[in-house]
Design a protein around this nucleic acid. Structure first.
Lengths: 228, 228
DNA sequence: CGTCTGGTTGAGATGTTTCAACTACGGTGG
DNA sequence: CCACCGTAGTTGAAACATCTCAACCAGACG
């Protein structure tokens, strides 16, 4: 039995590029689980005893201020991993946005495995580098972009991400609530809503059934995302 | 000859925890250089042919929007590394804030060395994880904190960083300009200036000779940084 | 059929920005 | 040696983008 060998999303994940033997070893230590929408996987401050890989669905990561203000630091989809920690505790909370399936790797075992399989360590490092680059993009967005630029960048990001995973890039599936979008972009739900209506009125996008956004004028979205 | 063996800041860097033989190998591929203030090390989009380690001074990383709006994504000091890339090109510009000394590792050689020394790869990965955590903190700051909270968080960060490197944590040395602080915190220079004066007037801090900020009421700064 | 939640819209409040003037300082050249 | 200039920082007043508070709407669900 080698469930990982048959994993349809392996090429997107940490597990890409492992050989069959390594995959077997990996399968030995992993637990897969299905989690419904709105469930907390772990909370800021919890002991970081596992690494996760998202194999389906969407997960959000966020941090809170004492008074409840929230910043979502990322939406994770198929192939993304989560669970990196400093000082053995998670620095953020992880919660499912939609129903999701995950592979869970106990920290100790995955650490041991990484010592054995440098390829895996390398892969994880490269994925973390990408995360870091995305985080820097997000800082630029949060610190310097206007509401309209933020929304356009957000739609573009979702679209490009879908494309990279082999899905249709338009219309874009937007499973998260206005509140989640607001907390991701450093706005309020009202501003998010108003900006969507603006774009709708301008004919740049239209909202469709099932949380889908059709981008009618992709070029305009591109330009507005960068403030051109 | 083994310059790395004698490196006084090794414990802070990527090179910590390498054994003498490994250090010798490392020394073979590295170039050290001294750079004066205000120099560009590399620019966004440049081919990423090297990794750097800051051994003295302060370096800033930033990204630009087409119209010139700028977001500084980090200030690097002794021990920090820079040069991670996606698609073989840098995603940000690196510029010295003060005069600085750096170790430069050609990408190809350091990659080869990492394959040989998993310890080093591991160390780099752990440092990247810390970077990522810091980036998430910064997103919370940019997206959800007020100007006063941002400034207090900033001073606190500098103070804690100095402490971790064995320097006095108060007064805090603030070598960067108001414009740099503004672009780091997602504010304007005017707001930065005004907020400093507010804190000064409230008796929480005082500005000293030589770009130093004395924190008179550390508890107040702590509380204000988190919005308590 | 009422209730609840998520989303939209409106009007006024507000924190930060913008634009502008002014000061302090350090270097430079006459 | 000092007038001059340019840069960095500070302060003020007005403008503005976004937020806050509030009402309203639509669909989901018991």
């Amino acid at each position: 039995m080698n469930p990982c060998g048959a994993c349809p999303v392996r090429s997107l994940t940490v597990c890409a590029a492992l050989d069959p033997e390594e995959l077997r070893r990996l399968a030995d230590i992993l637990q897969t689980s299905r989690v419904e929408a709105g469930q907390t996987l772990f909370s800021e401050g919890d002991a970081a005893d596992a690494l996760y890989n998202v194999t389906a669905g969407t997960v959000k990561l966020y941090k809170l201020l004492p008074d409840g203000r929230r910043q979502i630091t990322g939406f994770l989809v198929t192939g993304d991993f989560l669970g990196l920690a400093v000082n053995d505790s998670y620095a953020y909370t992880a919660e499912t946005v939609t129903a999701a399936t995950l592979c869970r790797f106990p920290r100790k075992k995955i650490d041991a495995l990484m010592d054995e399989f440098p390829k895996m360590q390398r892969r994880l490092f490269s994925m973390a580098s990408n995360e870091l680059a995305a985080a820097q993009d997000q800082m630029l967005l949060l610190g310097r972009k206007t509401a309209k630029e933020k929304i356009c960048s957000f739609l573009l990001m979702l679209s490009q991400r879908a494309a990279r995973r082999g899905h249709k890039e338009n219309p874009v599936y937007v499973p998260m609530s206005r509140a989640d979008i607001a907390d991701y972009l450093g706005l309020t739900t009202e501003t998010v809503s108003r900006t969507f209506t603006q774009l709708k009125t301008a004919g740049t996008i239209s909202l469709q059934e099932g949380n889908k956004v059709l981008i009618s004028d992709m070029d305009a979205i591109y330009d507005m995302a960068e403030g051109c």
